[in-house]
Amino acid sequence: MKRLFKTYLEKPELAGLILLVLLIILFQVRSHGVFLNQDNLRGILGILPEAGLVAIGVTILMISGEFDLSVGSVFALMPMTMAVLMVHGWPFPLALLAGLLVSAAIGFINGYITIRFAIPSFITTLGMLFMARSLTVVVSGGFPPLLPADLPNWLFTSFVGPGNMFRMSFLWFAAVALLTSLMLSRTNFGNWIKATGGFLPAAAAMGIPTARVKIVCFMLCSVLSGFAGMLQVLRLGSPLPSIGEGMELQAVASAVIGGASLLGGIGTVMGGIIGTTLIRVIDNGLVLSHVDANWFKFAIGFLTIFAVVANAWMRKRAKAIKMEG
């Protein structure tokens, strides 16, 4: 029992992973084997990178002790910026760069205002949620601009791999997941992020530039969200100004289901990915099991509360066991 709790403290994403495996088995049985067949898996893996990249950013930011509610709006604004620029004749790579810069700038503003005025990031990014969404609609000019025909889809959305199992976006997602994961666990910067979110006064007293660390996390979160939005637009073929609505809360749910602490300091990239996968699996599995699709949000909500309660309980138990021994 002790060992179990110790493992849990070291790997907060473990509970989510177990749940994920159980759900996959359940849906596989309920759907009479359709769930894990190639077509269905392709569908899930094809859209997972979009929500997954956002969840990675939100998870890392949460570990540093902050929130971002504007990710869904940045998700729409970034590709809209690109589309409008391309309509004006910008080549794709330049438009991509501009889109990423806009995303980074929004992340910077979120972070700078939060820290400079010592206000909760919940408020700053709530404001940004509305502002960035509004900007998206304004720059779109009311109706979605037409994307040029010669987009590098081969680099972002084409199917690849054995049996054309994955889209290219999945490879981007895997690479980002690997790099951010390594950054968090293997670099000194990752140490600073965890220290900043774990206990800010100690991090500051040890000379860590906590403001800069947080601002970098805000920027990373925005850039990943913008990039994810572009992937979705390339997949759908049209830059709708309404994409990404409600995404911010799903991303927070993913992070939390994956074991990240709302108070900062605890969490892993893998956890955020497991959380996202769980949400996608539930979404897909409910449909396949012929359950009324309106239960989806109920399931996500329940899971989120359940995950946080379970995490709090596990932490308390783990602590109690330590006190005894």
């Binding site: 965890k194 774990g198 991090a203």
Partner: peptide
């Protein structure tokens, strides 16, 4: 405020000077 409770002893020893 000397230590970050959510981090290991080894990590704490080197915060900022890894």
């Amino acid at each position: 405020n000397s230590m970050v409770p959510t981090m290991s002893i080894a990590r704490n020893l080197f915060i900022g000077r890894e």
